[in-house]
Design a protein around this nucleic acid. Structure first.
Lengths: 209, 209
DNA sequence: AATAAATTTGACTCAAGGTTCAATTTTTAT
DNA sequence: ATAAAAATTGAACCTTGAGTCAAATTTATT
């Protein structure tokens, strides 16, 4: 029923004056999710055990269950975290004179920066989620794809983007994003900023007219 | 030791005259691999049980072990199959007057066609392979990336491809390829041929100068 | 038809890893 | 200092799915 009951931090007594949202619990919970996200990205969901996740933070796997209902919930939250961040990026204010291509470039650049600078990663293993959660995540992903596609058609209307099937335009450069997620190593020689520059340029040349 | 001993079809007696390689066994073995590849691509390696794989061919999971040593070997062969096909494509003869961009476009188009028309799929789960096999697959992948990068630098030398970090050029459009593998549905409205056309064009615009 | 080889199966074993929980340690509040 | 709440743990439990194997069935051979 109330699948999210446990995310409420255990409060001794609901002191009405102290409305500052009790951070301790949530902060550590978020740390658990982020550690897991990083491990999932590198080794994959099923190749990462609860033990592995705990080890990163110096915890026993049993301790994780104080912050999280089960492993699947961690995966779910990883997905949510990524899509929340992407939603925020899509809210970028569009200058009235800005054309579709320019807006799209900015969004894409921010996507790349998100994946290289923050610990957030796009996970592709949506099949390991059970029915309800899986549906929710697929809906979110679809919503993002739709927003990006809309930006493309806008650009096609204002003449800044080449004609052609918008979905194919989008899938092409969104693929670059997902793949980036797989090979990018924060400690490697390629710096996030450079990748963002290069990718944004390649996106522009690829679809501008 | 001889990890591949079992792929030799059980021959009653090595009749020296009959050199036509006994197909029966190998044909069905290949069918097992391909069925698994398709399931792995859609649901992921760990979300696909031996039972699932057997079901596709109307077999019991126990029967699969007649054709294959273990599940990991299936994954390994899936990877090999994809990389073998990609190696073949890279062997494409290069007309003496053909520039780097043109060669690369042809290769890329064939890659797209491979993924949409044949049952072959690029699997990304290389972490589920044990040490030796994993190393082998990573080497193969690296070898292909190197070949594609070489094509890019050739194109940069002959003036057909924009300057810039060759690795970034490559990762961008190879991402499209890997992502294609995730979303493409043979029964969907997008036809493989159209995707190949569009993607090849987007590749060209993206990196030509 | 009889026999041998090839193929398939049902029933079982086994290990890995996710999950639970009562008990313990650490932190916070009085 | 003491008590209550929060955080963590070790040891068990349990489910899932990979892998084994002797026996049964199907296919090829003489």
């Amino acid at each position: 029923m109330d699948a999210n009951a446990h995310i409420n931090p255990p409060l001794k007594d609901v002191a009405p004056e102290d409305l500052a949202p009790e951070p301790k619990f949530m902060v550590k919970r978020r740390a658990v999710i982020l550690s897991a996200a990083s491990a999932f990205r590198r080794r994959g969901y099923h190749n990462t055990s609860m033990r592995d996740i705990g080890d990163i933070l110096g915890l026993t796997k049993a301790a994780l269950y104080y912050y999280v209902k089960n492993k699947e919930e961690i995966l779910f939250e990883c997905h949510l975290m990524a899509y929340d961040a992407m939603d925020d990026i899509l809210k970028r204010p569009q200058a009235p004179d800005e054309n579709g291509l320019s807006y799209l470039s900015g969004v894409f650049r921010d996507f790349v920066t998100l994946l290289t600078q923050s610990g957030v990663s796009i996970l592709s293993d949506v099949d390991s989620l059970g029915g309800e959660r899986q549906a929710q995540i697929l809906a979110r992903r679809n919503q993002i794809e739709t927003a990006v596609m809309k930006a493309v058609t806008t650009g096609q209307t204002d003449g800044s983007i080449r004609a052609g099937d918008a979905r194919l335009h989008v899938f092409f450069f969104m693929g670059a994003l997902n793949w980036l997620n797989v090979w990018y190593d924060a400690k490697g020689r390629l710096k996030g900023e450079d990748i963002a520059d290069h990718f944004t340029q390649q996106l522009q040349f690829g679809i501008s007219r």
